[in-house]
Amino acid sequence: MGSLIARSDVAVGTELPTQSFTVTRGDLVRYAGASGDFNVIHWNERVAISVGLPNVIAHGMLTMALGGRVVTDWIGDPGALVSYSVRFTRPVVVPDDDAGATVEVSGKVSAMHDDGTATVTLTARFEGSTVLGKAQAVVRLS
């Protein structure tokens, strides 16, 4: 089990294909059910606003999953993922409409390591601001 990406094809600065994701209220309901995270702020506007949020917000773990997808789509084999970490810096606010919120995730190789792994730094943007901080994945190259 290993990456489908060869070490010889990667260098610091190599970019992963950028992906754009749409997140609607329906997607939040689906994620809540699939993950078991039924925190009310992810589906109830009244409660979200009452605790000081602008509106219903996406699960941070859903945003992290979208970032993970950019990495696993690139490396091909999920078993090539060594570690993955993020900070949740800003919420993704999801409006009650059919368009939803748009999260764009890009990634770039930021370090190559002697043990055949590489660090990928991810950038997730929503409405022009980054929503994840220090989003990094270490992947094993073949």
């Binding site: 773990m61 078993g79 060594v82 570690s83 970490s85 949740f88």
Partner: peptide, 16 residues
């Protein structure tokens, strides 16, 4: 817990 937000998350994998 009513005031808790998720600040960071990390995973270190031996395998999937």
């Amino acid at each position: 817990y009513s005031r808790v937000v998720h600040g960071e998350q990390r995973f270190e994998y031996a395998r999937p």
